[in-house]
Design a binder for these strands. Structure first.
Lengths: 168, 168
DNA sequence: GCACGTATTGAGACTTGGTCGCAATAGTAT
DNA sequence: ATACTATTGCGACCAAGTCTCAATACGTGC
């Protein structure tokens, strides 16, 4: 389990900010780190309950925000069709990536691009923004959805697809 | 009125796709082209009613989607605090820009960056996406919100701020 | 270890943003 | 002008997330 460091970071965050360490918070932490791709609050709640854990919907929502504030999770609406709900994702310290989202089927590919990162910084500076941790997302069409003849078009969003990250 | 061309384009789109040209559609077109920055459906509806126009909420929502489909408006959730609602913006053909959004106060700055545009295309190609009209947004912190001492922090989102677009 | 004060939880009501169903209305082709 | 059917308006509905408030449980001080 590589997330031991992260759990310590979470505990430190809680204590440092005067929050209590509750069973629910720890369970939520465990769950989000057990999950692979992006997951929404409702699914997270369902997953926890199906494991027999007793935790309420409201608590999941509340603590998810706390997890985000601690820097251990990210919260985003990923364009496409699936942007009704916020999606959460655990963050291994500093290891941030950006998202490429199919505007039609909602497929999400993660990528890291030093080139874009550098330009982001420049753009921020040029417009009076402070270059801190950005979030960048590109919405476009995946090949499947762009192909006209194909059964193409709107498919089921399949979150969590990882793109090897050809360092463009 | 520079949007005459656009209106023709809209009419052509409607006719070409078997849609009817209704008073409501034209009024909505006029309204969104009269507006400057980003505006949400609810505000648009209110603006129209306050001008004495009779149009229903549902019709605004329905036709806004049509306007987007015609390519004459864009629909996005702009990160920050204001991403509860979709924001719409009229598009002068091809003149697309990207957004820099303050994650704290929701301030939006528009920018155009050929460099980023080129990288977007590369990244799309590298990951099996078709480089069509992307949408790219960078969420960060504006100077005001990043300044610690200041009255800083969460301010009222002020949509529609235009950034001169230093071609980075 | 125990008691006490307060943050947190759970349950459900509520809010908000957006969609749907259906009868009435109004484009458009003939 | 007529008829055919898309569109409108209305209110009901739905989904995601937040709020309220009594009950619970952290964790500090003893």
């Amino acid at each position: 389990m590589a997330e031991i460091r992260e759990k310590e970071q979470f505990l430190a965050y809680l204590r440092g900010s005067g929050h209590r360490v509750t069973a629910e918070r720890l369970a939520l932490f465990d769950e989000i780190f057990a999950q692979h791709g992006h997951i929404d609050a409702e699914e997270l709640h369902a997953a926890m309950r199906s494991q027999g854990l007793k935790i309420s919907r409201a608590t999941v929502y509340r603590n998810l925000d706390l997890l985000v504030a601690s820097g251990l999770a990210s919260k985003q609406r990923l364009g496409g069709l699936s942007d009704r709900r916020f999606l959460y994702e655990h963050v291994h310290r500093g290891q941030r990536h950006d998202h490429l989202i199919c505007a039609s089927c909602g497929r999400v590919v993660e990528f890291v691009s030093p080139g874009i990162a550098a330009l982001q910084t420049e753009i921020c500076r040029a417009h009076g923004f402070v270059p801190t941790h950005h979030t960048l997302e590109i919405r476009s069409l995946c090949n499947a959805c762009a192909a006209p003849g194909e059964s193409g078009g709107t498919q089921q969003p399949s979150a969590g697809v990882r793109g090897g990250g050809a360092g463009v």
